[in-house]
């Protein structure tokens, strides 16, 4: 008996618990599954290549996932009869099993449904800067069961979609522009109007300090050691942080160059006279 005959015999051997199905059938089942996974991967890569830069990243990710899992599901449905599982039987069994699994996997289902609602409502998109459940960072992916965030320190955080959906979400880039501010104190002897004019000119020079809504600068408080100026700036949401970090130091340097200083806390002490 040669090897081929041996293999043929093995393939024709029936497997008891699979109701008369042979090893050959199982092999065909596995080949179909593997084949569908390979096809799904190839199609996914091509979908990504074709649609990248043509559709928004979130849509691309969703399309990719639908295509990928859709092809695998089709492969699975095609392969099931090979191991003796009929689709009609599966549906009946699925109904009963569904109830059992439903109870056992409430959290998974809840995450799944939350994930679907997140994809429909779109409070966040891939690439957005967000704060969810006290986790701040960039949204890396919105999956069916969970959302992943890369914190600003580069740490990977996976949040179940149920939590994302029920949490307060702060999306820093949902609107085109956002406002931020500084409080800067100057000495009492400095000219506050001159300081305001210097800061206005400086902000006018920065391309991303928006012209409209225009920055507001005003004397907010006569503090213990300084006259406090309040500065409010609008900038495009996508670049606001670089504007924020750049402008504070520039304001300080420019004010000092113009002879306006930011004072240290100080207290005037009157010394009592012994004879008095």
């Amino acid at each position: 008996m040669n090897v081929i005959e041996l293999l043929q015999d093995l393939m024709n051997q029936k497997i008891g618990f699979l109701g008369g199905r042979t090893y050959g059938d199982v092999l065909v089942f596995l080949i179909i599954i593997i084949f569908s996974v390979i096809i799904a991967k190839i199609v996914r890569i091509n979908v990504r290549r074709t649609l990248k830069e043509k559709v928004p990243l979130t849509t691309l990710n969703n399309v990719e996932k639908i295509v990928y899992y859709g092809i695998i599901l089709i492969g699975f449905i095609v392969a099931l009869p090979k191991i003796g599982v009929s689709l009609s039987g599966l549906l009946v069994a699925g109904g009963i099993l569904g109830i059992v699994i439903g109870f056992a996997s409430q959290t998974v289902v809840s995450n799944l449904i939350s994930g679907i609602f997140l994809m429909i409502e779109k409070p966040i998109k891939v690439g957005d800067g967000v704060n969810i459940n006290d986790v701040s960072g960039i949204v890396e992916d919105i999956r069916v069961l969970s959302t992943t965030i890369r914190t600003y320190d580069g740490i990977y955080v996976r949040i179940p979609n149920e939590k994302v959906f029920s949490s307060n979400i702060q999306n820093y880039v949902a609107h085109g522009a956002r406002r931020f501010g500084y409080k800067i104190g100057i000495r009492y002897k400095d000219d506050a109007e001159k300081a305001i004019s210097i800061i206005k000119d400086l902000l006018g020079e920065n391309p991303f300090v928006l012209k409209e809504p225009s920055p507001t600068i005003f004397v907010e408080e006569l503090g213990e050691s300084s006259v406090n100026l309040n500065i409010k700036i609008w900038a495009p949401s996508s670049v606001w942080y670089s504007v924020y970090t750049e402008m504070l130091w520039k304001i300080k340097v420019t004010l000092e160059k113009e002879g306006i200083e930011i004072p240290f806390p100080q207290r005037v002490i009157w010394m009592g006279n012994k004879e008095g």
Binding site: G176, K211, E212
Partner: peptide, 19 residues
């Protein structure tokens, strides 16, 4: 030129534009 940007429309729905 010296680029400068502005907002057209309200902050929640407006668009950032080169001015």
């Amino acid at each position: 030129t010296k680029p400068k940007y502005t907002l057209y429309g309200p902050p929640e729905r407006g668009v950032v534009c080169r001015w």
